[in-house]
Structure formats: C-alpha cells, structure tokens
C-alpha cells in the first residue's frame, strides 16, 4: 500500500471515530436532541456537542497526532524502534514546568501552566539539541536523555516535597496524569501554533532520517545538510512534545506505539512513516479518551492512565517483535 492511500484510510478512520466520540458521551442525547444540536448550536444539546465534546475530541486528536509524529521522528533519529517522545527528557521537562507553575500558585493566571509546560519542554529540548551536536551516536543521546529525564523528575519530586498546599500537590498529580477534559477551542488553537512549526521542522528533516538508516558516517557523506537536519528533527520533536504536554499533560506510549502500527505498511521508510504515524497517534488518543469517558467508573479515568494501561503491554509486544527481528 502506498503511503498516500494509507494516510487517506487513516484520515477516514479518524473522522468516523471523531464523529462517534462527539456523538457519544456520559450524558446520552435523544434523537430529537441531536437534531436540535445541529439546528441550533447554542441550544443546551448543541452546547454539549460543540462546546464540550467537540473541542475535547479535537484536542485529543491534535495531541495524539503530535505525539505520534514526534515518536516517529525520534525513532528515525535515534535509529531505535523503542524510542519515543519522552526518551530525550522533553516530556519530563514539560511536566516540571507545569508542576512548578502550579506550586507557585500560577494556576489562576490563564495560560500560565501551559506556557510553563511548553517552556520547560523547550528548555529540555535545547539541552538535547546541544547534546545532539556533540554526541553523534544515538546510544549516547539516549543515555543523555535518560539523565535529563531523571533530573527533571527529581526536580518535580522536589516541587512536591516543598509544596505546602495539599491542593497544589493534588492538582500537580492530576495534571501529570494527562487529560483533555474541559478543553475549549482556545486551548486547541493555542497548541496548534507550536505543533505546526514542529511538524514543519520534521518534514524538513524527513530526508535526513532516511539517510540515517545507514548510520552517521554514511549519512555524513550523503550530501544532505545532516547537522541542520538533526537539529531540526530534535527541535521539531521537542516543539510537538512540548505543545502536547502543555495541552494535555504527560501522556505516554502513544508516540511509541503509533509508528509501529503503520511502519510495515510503508515498508519501514522512516520518512514515509511520519504522516501515517501522526494519524495513527490521533486515532489512538481519541479512542483512549472515548474509552476513559464511557467506562462506567465512579471517577473518570485520566487519559494518561488509559494510554499507559493499554500501551505498556503493547510496548512489551513490540519489544518482543523487535528482538525477533534483531535475531534474524
């Protein structure tokens, strides 16, 4: 199947799923109410569909798309099928930024938490770009990311440690679990700008990712501006991940799993896998959010919890499959 046809199919699946996710929710609507919602968007059923559910579904799609794309870029750059957006410490940096903002009582300032999360993610991303220019081997970069992640995690723990208010502690924890509940159109629009820039950078670096298949030295003699493309791919992934973390908290496994669902269909091409990965990520997160909403639990399941519950076993399966291909 060509990458174009695959993407068209995924777009179709995403649209059907999104329509389903907007149509169904905790508050069941009657047929008359659906008609009313379409006729008068400002009627109460219209509010439920267009002001509550639709922005939430679109936010899930946008965040999932960003994570799927960032995951595919990270896997290409690091030449490692088990890499994901969080592997370089960018997510942890975003989490730290948000935690610090909440602990400082900035939650009342509109956009402060999101801004702090994005700033934290971009600071971590900057550190990774500097490291990527110095260390060419993906293994070194991964280890650097592990260290950065652990340090940001330690600082977040420190924020918990020093936080006097149990309310703030609860808010931070809730935020770190990840969610797209109560998002409005403004939140979506706000996240889209850094994501679009990140996606553009990733598109620019795509040819370099293909060349990286043969390793650093072969790529260095390919004639492509590899140093610039490496920096662009890290910056792009950092922007996408940072904006995703800012919009929805820390959501794991989507960026890891999404590329694997589509990689075989594009014959393992690290450039052609990008767009289908983004679409698969969007589908996964819209589905996960729908599952979290409609499961009859006392308290609504957090999005990050749902993705981890499904994602961690999938991760183990992927690892086993990858190990088989390495033995071959």
């Amino acid at each position: 199947m060509s990458a174009g046809r695959l993407s068209a199919l995924l777009v179709l699946a995403l649209l059907v799923l999104a329509a389903t996710a907007i149509a169904f929710g905790e508050a069941p609507l009657s047929g008359v109410q659906y008609v009313q919602a379409f006729r008068a968007p400002s009627s109460p059923p219209g509010e439920v569909l267009w002001a509550l559910r639709a922005p939430r579904v679109v936010a899930a799609a946008v965040v999932g798309g960003a994570l799927g794309l960032a995951g595919a870029v990270m896997q290409g750059l690091l030449r490692n099928p088990l890499a994901e957006p969080g592997v370089l410490g960018v997510s942890a940096g975003g989490g730290l930024g948000a935690a610090a903002a909440i602990a400082l009582g900035l939650a009342v300032v509109p956009g402060a938490i999101e801004g702090a999360a994005l700033a934290g993610a971009l600071l971590a991303g900057l550190a990774v770009i500097v490291a990527a220019a110095r260390f060419r081997e993906p293994e070194t970069l991964i280890l650097f990311g592990v260290a950065l992640s652990a340090f940001a995690g330690a600082l977040t723990a420190l924020v918990f440690n020093l936080s006097l208010s149990p309310m703030a502690t609860r808010d931070i924890l809730s935020w770190l679990m990840g969610s797209v509940a109560n998002r409005d159109w403004g939140d979506v629009a706000w996240a889209l700008a850094p994501m679009a820039l990140g996606a553009g950078l990733c598109a620019y670096a795509a040819r370099g990712l293909v060349m990286m298949t043969l390793g650093e030295e072969a790529a260095a003699l390919s004639g492509l501006p590899m140093a610039r493309m490496r920096a662009a791919s890290v910056a792009g992934a950092a922007l996408l991940t940072g904006a995703a973390v800012a919009a929805a908290g820390v959501i794991g496994f989507v960026g890891l799993v999404a590329p694997h669902l589509v990689r075989g269909a594009v014959r393992h091409d690290p450039a052609r896998v990008l767009l289908p990965s983004a679409l698969a990520g969007a589908i996964l997160l819209v589905a996960a959010d729908l599952v979290g909403r409609i499961l009859p639990t006392e308290v609504e399941l957090k999005l990050g919890v749902v993705t981890a519950l499904f994602g961690a076993p999938l991760f183990a399966l992927i690892a086993a499959r990858v190990a088989r291909s390495w033995r071959a």
């Binding site: 030449r79 990286m212 043969l214 390793g215 072969a218 260095a220 003699l221 393992h268 091409d269 690290p270």
Partner: peptide, 12 residues
C-alpha cells in the same frame, strides 16, 4: 563512502 559499520536501522 562505504563505512565498515554495516548496521542498517530499518528494513527498507
């Protein structure tokens, strides 16, 4: 250049 390193990351 054909480097000595023959690891190929993806099954293109």
């Amino acid at each position: 250049y054909l480097p000595q390193e023959r690891r190929i990351a993806w099954s293109l």
